[in-house]
Design a protein around this nucleic acid. Structure first.
Lengths: 116, 116
DNA sequence: TTACATATCTTGCGTCGCAAGACACCATGT
DNA sequence: ACATGGTGTCTTGCGACGCAAGATATGTAA
């Protein structure tokens, strides 16, 4: 159960998808690049085995598209791009997340309830 | 997949336990009372079927204790109290959560990350 | 050749929130 | 007496998803 240092793994559930969308909103990226970017972000991700199924789910949901790019002097890599539906989904998640995080913070720290 | 209004269910994973601890930190409560309190908090919880297994897990982990109280004029109810280990776990989660929420917010909303 | 890094993808597993339902108790109404 | 509805605890089956580990393929360097 406690493979990681605490229950942080469970926290990542449902967050990784939107985070991928947010990264793709800046520019298209390939799979391992996303793994590196998310790992760099305070260890949001620990294994590439998480990302490829996740990207497939996002693609099946119509939130991203993928395309092989075989530029000269580069390896052939599959690049993912966000779709308009992905933009919309991300936009909605941003407000959902803000609300959710605020709710959790208020339960965790009831002092801030009344208001400063 | 989109049974609820978004993927909010997944967000609750790993958060409900600490939220229960935070409520028990204020005072002991019984199961259905926790259900009502968490439901009132912006729908952090939807079913009592979530809470009783969760309380068992917290008890097995030594984070809460439970005790039947049969006061006169009241129904017999099982009250849960937080333990010192529960306090410690909650304290740690508060910092973990603050860090995690900040990380997610920064990925979702990349402000001044030095990188084109 | 050997060895290692890069890159994509698959498999099996464990956790946990959820809906639905079972069971028991108590108060009230007819 | 009997039925009804609210309260309270608990169990079962399910589905979603992050993770570790491994498979495969290719490019670069010793």
């Amino acid at each position: 159960m406690a493979g990681d240092s605490g229950g942080l793994t469970e926290l990542r559930r449902g967050v990784l998808g939107p985070c991928v969308l947010a990264l793709l909103e800046l520019r298209p990226r390939f799979g391992l690049e996303l793994v590196r970017d998310l790992s760099a972000a305070d260890g949001l991700l620990t294994s590439d085995g998480t990302v490829y199924p996740l990207l497939n789910r996002l693609r099946d949901a119509g939130l991203v598209t993928s395309e092989w790019r075989d530029n000269e002097g580069e390896r052939a890599r599959r690049y993912y791009s966000i779709t308009p539906a992905g933009h919309q989904s991300l936009k909605r998640f941003r407000t959902d997340w803000a609300q959710f995080a605020a709710t959790v913070a208020s339960v965790l720290d009831p002092r801030d309830r009344g208001k400063p």
